[in-house]
Design a protein around this nucleic acid. Structure first.
Length: 267
DNA sequence: AGCCAGGGTCTGC
DNA sequence: GCAGACCATGGC
């Protein structure tokens, strides 16, 4: 297990980021957060604007995972020119949008449909324990698409994922056989990539947009669920400021957090 | 008991 | 296109 630090421009609030409904495998362990991603276990904490990571994984993976290339100081400056968006930003300034492994993100947000965060977390955990690889410390990795692709709905019964099991299997099969491929999706324009993702059984626009944003680094994508629809109508009836649109997905993360946890303190 | 949870599919207009 | 029933499961 090695330890290194990565500079995250603009910093990160681990608690706010990991609880913001984008990632489901981090938990508080003493004064650190521990989690598993991309087959790697990690314990992390912030030291100023640097994240200290203890992990077997390589630095390049975690740089990408924590979006270290993205300067959040500049982003917040841009967002805060708008008064309403500034209120959302100030409610949890340290939120970052993570870039998570593609297949894991796809499955996680298939599981998220018509579901709540505690149960999403439980299903993902059971998926790892049932089909993932056990690491020496007893933690489990997220399973590979190839592992799931040959399973049946009955095999997935221990997950208690309900009607989503058949969706997970189709996603695994399309990824395993190359029909849906991360490298190809990266090259496509957003609309083409979204259409490709929606061909997966059980993936509609909202789940596809979550995969684009959280799993493919398309930070201009805004997943619209019932809460975001209401928030946009109430807070931004004329849409987001034009300067924000290239980063609208990140703005969305602040707005979502604000409307879920902060709005009631202002109304 | 009934409703809701960061939706999607299928059917019928 | 668009509304409405239905989908498994669990917490409140």
């Amino acid at each position: 297990m090695s330890e290194f630090s990565i500079y995250l421009p603009g910093g990160m609030d681990c608690a706010a980021t990991f609880a913001s409904g984008q990632a489901f495998r981090w938990r508080l362990c003493g004064d650190e957060f521990c989690g598993i991603a991309g087959g790697y276990y990690a314990r992390v904490h912030m030291q100023g604007d640097n994240i200290i990571i203890k992990t077997d994984g390589d630095e390049a993976f975690w740089c990408r995972y924590f979006a270290a290339q993205q300067d959040y100081t500049a982003l917040r400056d841009c967002f805060c020119k708008d008064e309403t968006l500034a209120a959302c930003v100030h409610f949890a300034e340290g939120i970052r949008v993570l870039r998570q492994p593609f297949f894991e993100t796809l499955c996680t947000f298939i599981i998220s449909q018509n579901n709540n965060i505690p149960r999403i977390t439980g299903i993902v955990q059971r998926m790892c324990e049932t089909f993932g690889t056990c690491l020496p410390n007893g933690e489990y990795t997220f399973p590979a698409a190839e592992t799931l692709a040959c399973k049946t709905v009955e095999d997935l019964a221990p997950l208690r994922s309900g009607f989503r099991a058949k969706y997970l299997l189709d996603a695994a099969r399309q990824v395993a056989n190359g029909t849906v491929n991360e490298k190809d999706l990266e090259k496509m324009d957003i609309d083409t990539a979204r259409k490709c993702l929606i061909e997966i059984y059980g993936v509609g626009q909202k789940v596809a947009d979550c995969v684009l944003l959280y799993g493919l680094g398309r930070i201009e994508t805004v997943p619209i669920d019932v809460h975001m629809r209401r928030a946009m109508e109430n807070l931004f009836p004329n849409g987001l400021p034009l300067e924000v649109l290239p980063y609208a997905g990140i703005a969305q993360q602040f707005i979502f957090h604000y409307t879920r946890l902060g709005a009631q303190t202002h109304t």
